[in-house]
């Protein structure tokens, strides 16, 4: 083979490589917009299993996930039953896999939120629960429901509905968010009925149905005729106690009527789908920024009473709720730290 021929072949080879490279480059160029058009990949981490059928809080989140999937075409991966201690590692795994967003639906995951977000500044980390402080990272946000206001709405319903004047509040674990919520309930119930007595008991976990039943039954024995369970899958125990004891339930966070139609007074709904829609709109328009969105009473509402109370009582409650949403009710803000004990 002549020297000239070798040079010619080398040049040809280089040209072919360049051509292939160019084609590949073109392909990459062509794929770039396609990549932008591909589905947004989000992951959400639940500490409980089966969130679609768990307590109201998780069901509300599930409705939000459905909105992301069906209305915005997002690809949402759901991790269930992840213990708090493993939440940060799970979130880091999603960030390393290139997910666009990692969502935490539970204030119990705050430590993981604060820990993992600074390590992955290219991934958005979003808290969909009570949040007072954002992690030190550029891509973090929170939609934080005002649980005191939520508790006030519960208190208005329970205070108006109780005939015995005794309301039972069953909590899972005495975390600060729950103390805040129950404090709002106590103050609002007193606002509409000054002589009301509010019994506040904690089960110690979110899931043990039998323990939940015992505590709710105990409250009913003590005269409570309206029970508000703010807990997890263990809520079913409270429903059963209410059925056996003839009390009524105010459902938590989502319309819980189907779970116990005989005892459901109404449910105080947290409009989590709206929170998720806000997130989707802002992410897709590029307007999502580092901030805490404080979701007030306008994010809360009542489920249908379905004849559980007389019409005039329902009307009174709805009027009070409207006033609360408009900021027209002078309910004092008092945090009852004593209910969580010391």
């Amino acid at each position: 083979m002549s020297k000239r021929s070798v040079v010619r072949r080398l040049v040809a080879g280089v040209l072919v490589l360049l051509l292939l490279g160019g084609l590949a480059g073109c392909a990459a160029e062509e794929e770039k917009p396609a990549a932008q058009e591909t589905k947004v990949k989000a992951a959400i981490i639940f500490s409980i299993v089966n969130p679609a059928r768990a307590g109201g809080w998780d069901r509300a989140d599930w409705a939000g996930i459905e909105a992301l999937r069906n209305e915005y075409g997002w690809e949402v991966t759901v991790a269930e039953g992840v213990p708090y201690a493993q939440t940060a590692a799970t979130a880091a795994g999603y960030a390393e896999q290139g997910y666009d967003l990692v969502i935490f639906p539970d204030a119990g995951q705050t430590a993981a939120f604060l820990e993992v977000a600074p390590k992955y500044p290219k991934t958005w980390f979003v808290m969909m629960s009570m949040c007072e402080k954002l992690p030190n990272s550029p891509r973090v946000a929170a939609w934080s429901p005002d649980l005191y206001a939520y508790g006030e709405m519960v208190g208005l319903v329970a205070g108006k509905a109780t005939e015995s004047g005794i309301i039972g509040l069953v909590g899972g674990v005495p975390v600060p968010a729950l103390i805040t919520l129950f404090s709002g309930t106590i103050e609002a119930a007193k606002f509409v009925r000054p002589d009301v007595e509010v019994l506040t008991y904690f089960v110690g976990d979110w899931v043990d149905v039998a323990k939940h039943r015992e505590l709710a039954a105990l409250q009913i024995q003590e005269g409570a005729d309206v029970i508000f369970p703010e807990t997890g899958p263990g809520t079913l125990g409270c429903y059963e106690a209410a059925q056996a004891g003839g009390a009524k339930i105010v459902g938590f966070a989502w319309d819980m009527y189907e779970d116990a139609p005989e005892v459901m007074l109404t449910s105080v709904i947290i409009n989590k789908p709206r929170m998720y829609r806000d997130l989707a709109e802002q992410f897709m328009s590029g307007d999502l920024e580092k901030k805490i969105v404080h979701c007030g009473a306008e994010y809360f509402g009542l489920a249908d009473f379905r004849g559980s109370l007389p019409e005039e009582t329902v009307k009174e409650i709805q009027d009070l709720v409207t006033k609360l949403q408009n900021g027209e009710l002078p309910i004092p803000v008092v945090i009852h730290e004593e209910i969580g004990g010391s």
Partner: peptide, 21 residues
């Protein structure tokens, strides 16, 4: 113990519920 733990909360001593539980 379990039944007592629940009833002790009703006493309203101001102790953390975990002590009873």
């Amino acid at each position: 113990g379990e039944a007592l733990a629940f009833r002790a909360q009703a006493l309203g001593t101001g102790l953390n519920p975990y002590y009873y539980l």
